[in-house]
Computed example of a mutant assay.
Amino acid sequence: MQALLALSRAIDRLNAFVGKYSIWLIFAATFISAANAIVRKAFNYSSNGFLEVQWYLFAWSFLIAAGWTLLNREHVRIDVINSRLSKKAQVWIDIVGFALFLTPLCITILWLSVPEVIQKYTSGEMSGNPGGLIRWPVWVAIPVGITLLMLQGWSELIKRIAFLTGDGPDPMGRLADKSAEEELAEALRAEADKKQAEALAAAQR
């Protein structure tokens, strides 16, 4: 079990790294979108390639961050019934979901998508739009993203089995790392408390 937990931690680090830097793909898509609009208005020039590269970047950011999203438990969950169950029952539901639903689904998508990626790479398939881009780079995002998601599913499966055997902490507990929104809220509260204390001190003088 300790070897499996070490594997789980390695997968977590991988998806945490990917998720941390995938935001730059969104930034690049936004920058290209703004630059395309400026060039179109200023020089009356545009290209479908500018639009397609934005779609490519968005597809990459969405797909490769799927594992990071699962790591941070940010996927949509239906907790109306699940939240009323015991912790052990919730863990078992996740185990069944990761083992019997997520993993087979990911394997099926990989089975179907990898031959498509190879075919598009070998044929050099291009977009049907004038000025469009070559297709295979965006198709590669599918197996890459699904592999990261499947690995994270295995990591979460290991954590839940370890919890049931008493070898790991509660995998359903609160995450240690705060989100950007939580950090901002705490900073604002601290600033407000500081200003209130300064105002109170000034009033007592």
Rank of each mutant, 00 (worst) to 15 (best):
P104E: 03
S47F: 05
P104Q: 03
W60C: 12
D79G: 03
Y56V: 10
G49V: 06
V96S: 01
N82I: 12
S46H: 05
E52D: 06
H75N: 12
A89C: 05
S47Q: 10
K88G: 06
T69G: 08
F98R: 02
S86A: 07
I107A: 15
V76T: 08
R84Y: 06
C106A: 14
I93D: 00
I95W: 00
N82A: 14
D94M: 07
W111T: 08
F62W: 12
W68N: 15
I107V: 13
T103Q: 08
D79M: 09
G97N: 07
L100E: 00
P104G: 03
F50G: 10
W68I: 01
I107K: 04
L85Y: 05
T69S: 10
L105V: 11
S113I: 05
G49Y: 07
W92G: 01
L70Y: 02
R84I: 02
P115R: 05
I93F: 01
F101V: 15
S47P: 01
G97L: 06
E52C: 03
G49S: 09
N72F: 05
A59F: 09
W92P: 03
I109E: 06
E74N: 11
G49C: 07
F98K: 06
W111D: 07
W55E: 01
I95N: 02
E74K: 14
S83W: 01
V91A: 11
L105Y: 08
L85H: 08
R77T: 11
L110K: 05
L102W: 00
W60Q: 11
V114C: 06
N72L: 11
R77H: 02
L112Y: 05
N82S: 14
I109K: 05
N72D: 06
D94H: 11
A66R: 06
K88M: 07
F62T: 09
R77V: 13
I109F: 04
S46A: 15
E116L: 13
I64L: 13
S47G: 04
F98A: 10
K88C: 00
W68G: 09
Y45K: 15
L51G: 15
A89V: 13
L100K: 00
